[in-house]
Nucleic acid binder design. Structure first.
Length: 270
DNA sequence: AAAGACACCTGTCCGC
DNA sequence: TGCGGACAGGTGTCTT
């Protein structure tokens, strides 16, 4: 479900309801996520939620005693509801606040995660080696060009590598490469500086547009308030294999790169 | 070190 | 209508 825009939309959706509030209880209904939810998550009970931030696709819920790391995996969804709302299938976690509102994590496929970190969260093993945030000034064409030198992997898998840059998932990698006119199979190390100068702003723009549209709704993604995201209407290639290119009318090609479905226009993308 | 395959799950959709 | 198989937004881990 979530790429960076969907995670950010989720963050923006939940934070006004829970930031600054006292956590009264953490209820673990089903600890079977990507890793078993540890007992240490209980340490935030009685703590004030100081901030809800994001690093890559991890949501960070900060308290004075430590930080919860929350990942949505492929199918995780967050909602804030009154504690009288009945539980649904695959509701794994509830974090209850002083005003009776509850943050619920629902995750059918269980690739999501909830962990607790008592120390500096940025040096947590899951976060320490991540690349820059795509929407910050640290992510530049010069950086990406330099990082790509000598790399033989396809540019699509390269920009989806979290050690290179975080938050570019399968949808937006397909979309950004289409807009930049770059063939996703092209070796990262043989893409010119000029083309990275085109690509990097398009990655940023694609992600920002998707956030502004409330994310991409495919299948079942909805935002925290239950509304869908509208970015799906703007997808140029993702999910459109075999259909016409919206620019040149050629038939879009669908292949697999790194076991991920990859759609591109053989005429527009070289 | 880098690149690729695999694993972890459930739900949905498609073809027969 | 049922059944098998393929596929789905991610990413840590293992194997080449």
């Amino acid at each position: 479900m979530p790429e960076l825009p969907e995670v950010e939309v989720s963050r923006l959706g939940i934070s006004p309801h829970i930031e600054g509030k006292l956590i009264t209880q953490v209820r673990v209904h089903d600890a079977r996520l990507r890793w078993p939810v540890p007992e240490t998550v209980q340490r935030v009970s009685g703590q004030r939620l100081e901030a809800v931030t994001r690093r890559a696709k991890y949501l960070l819920l900060k308290t004075a005693v430590g930080t919860l790391l929350l990942h949505l995996g492929m199918s995780g969804k967050l909602r804030v509801v009154p504690n009288t709302t009945s539980l649904k299938k695959h509701d794994h976690i509830e974090i209850e606040f002083e005003d009776g509102q509850v943050l619920r994590l629902n995750d059918p496929r269980r690739f999501g995660a909830l962990l607790f970190c008592a120390d500096d969260v940025s040096s947590h093993e899951l976060l320490a080696r991540l690349g820059p945030e795509p929407l910050t000034e640290a992510f530049t064409a010069d950086y990406l060009f330099a990082a790509s030198r000598g790399r033989k992997q396809a540019i699509k898998t390269f920009i989806m590598d979290n050690h290179v840059v975080v938050g570019v998932g399968n949808i937006y990698a397909n979309e950004a490469l289409f807009k930049a006119g770059i063939n996703p199979k092209r070796q990262a190390g043989q893409v010119s500086r000029a083309r990275y100068q085109k690509l990097v702003p398009l990655i940023k723009q694609t992600l920002q547009d998707a956030i502004a549209q409330g994310g991409t709704t495919l299948r079942d993604f909805t935002n925290v308030d239950g509304s869908p995201g509208y970015f799906a209407q703007q997808l140029m290639v993702y999910g459109r294999g075999g259909k016409r290119c919206m620019v040149c009318q050629a038939t879009l090609k669908e292949i697999r790169l790194g076991q991920r479905s990859t759609v591109y226009c053989t005429r527009c993308q070289r």
